[in-house]
């Protein structure tokens, strides 16, 4: 990533006549201060990010329950998950539906809106940015959707539909298995213009103006060609970063579902892997089993990120 950016501060040790291990050791001693500087971060990072992942993988092969010493059970937890746990199958399906819709749609929405507002004057752009970005930073403001779609006639949507005579009795939106998934997806999308959106705005702003001038000379006719041939290839690093942010958050909308539909959601209609994880880990203390769930979710997240990175690296090639 930053091959040429680090500075050789003191005189580098000559690499000749030294084994790789010796050279590394010398370099390490020479840069002692760097290790002191990264130590606080790396220690905490190891403790709160790396160790939990490693421990989860370990526990997923045991029957740990927080009280007794864990016993090694091999892949029994995984077998139980895939063969005996019907609700887990629903959870996997819902998680994928959620991520496959929310991830790409929020990504495209972020990109399109950022592109739409790029040519506006700075003041108007700042206001529009705020309008689109605000829902993602306003905490649990999305619960207002619960009020809008409230299941009684005081709910605005039900009230309007009743008034217009389109329905004869209220629809219990967040208690109806047919409605919960689509509604939760809409709400998740509403809160999804976050970090990737800002990154795209900055990426578009940073494109060198002369590329467009050169493009015009080379015969680019309209803004669509400009977008495809100049804009997107020039902001590839942002596209990559935005993709990672969008994918990761598209798996993290469990809280939206819980706050709007309760837990568990009706007929498990919006039950995701994250809820399943909470259920077994947080409520039943089956650490071994829930670790297996966590490992699978972890694998899905990392896997889809790597996949999308591979696809995006082909943009403009």
């Amino acid at each position: 990533m930053s091959k040429n950016t680090a500075v050789e501060t003191k005189k580098a040790v000559s690499r000749k006549d030294m084994t790789w291990a010796q050279w590394t050791w010398k370099e390490m001693k020479r840069n002692k201060v760097a290790y002191v500087m990264v130590a606080p971060f790396m220690i905490l990072f190891t403790l709160f990010t790396v160790a939990p992942v490693v421990l989860s993988i370990f526990f997923s092969f045991t029957d740990f329950n927080l009280l007794q010493t864990p016993n090694w059970v091999g892949i029994e937890n995984y077998i139980r998950l895939f063969l005996d746990d019907d609700i887990f199958m629903i959870a996997i399906q819902n998680t994928f539906i959620f991520a496959v819709i929310v991830g790409p749609v929020s990504y495209l929405m972020s990109l399109l809106v950022a592109w739409f507002i790029n040519e506006l004057s700075p003041k108007i752009r700042a206001i529009v940015t705020l309008v689109f970005y605000a829902p993602s930073i306003s905490g649990e403001i999305y619960t207002i959707w619960g009020t809008l779609f409230s299941s009684d006639s005081q709910g605005w949507v039900n009230g309007k539909l009743l008034e217009l005579g389109l329905i004869t009795s209220e629809i219990k939106f967040f208690q109806n298995a047919n409605w919960v998934m689509p509604l939760c997806i809409v709400v998740a999308l509403w809160t999804s213009l976050g970090t990737s959106f800002l990154s795209f705005i900055a990426g578009l702003q940073g494109i060198n103006q002369s590329y467009y001038e050169a493009g015009a000379v080379d015969g680019i006719k309209n803004r669509w060609q400009e977008l495809w041939y100049i804009t997107l290839p020039s902001m590839k690093p942002q596209l990559m970063f935005g993709a990672i942010m969008s994918i990761t958050s598209s798996f993290g909308f469990g809280g939206v579902v819980t706050n709007l539909c309760g837990f568990p959601s009706v007929d498990y209609a919006a039950h995701t892997i994250m809820h399943h994880l909470d259920d077994y880990g947080g409520a039943r203390y089956e650490v071994g089993y829930s670790s297996a769930i966590a490992v699978i979710l972890f694998g899905i997240m990392i896997g889809s990120n790597i996949l999308v990175k591979k696809v995006l690296s082909k943009v403009g090639q």
Binding site: S2, E8, N31, F45, S56, I244, F251, A294
Partner: peptide, 28 residues
């Protein structure tokens, strides 16, 4: 700004952790 053995590996590890949501590790 400092070139030291392990620096890039550390940064790449941190960057990889952007790929998963912290709820995965809540229990551990």
């Amino acid at each position: 700004k400092i070139k030291f053995p392990g620096g890039r590996v550390m940064f790449k590890t941190v960057r990889t952790s952007l790929m998963f949501h912290s709820t995965v590790t809540a229990i551990t």
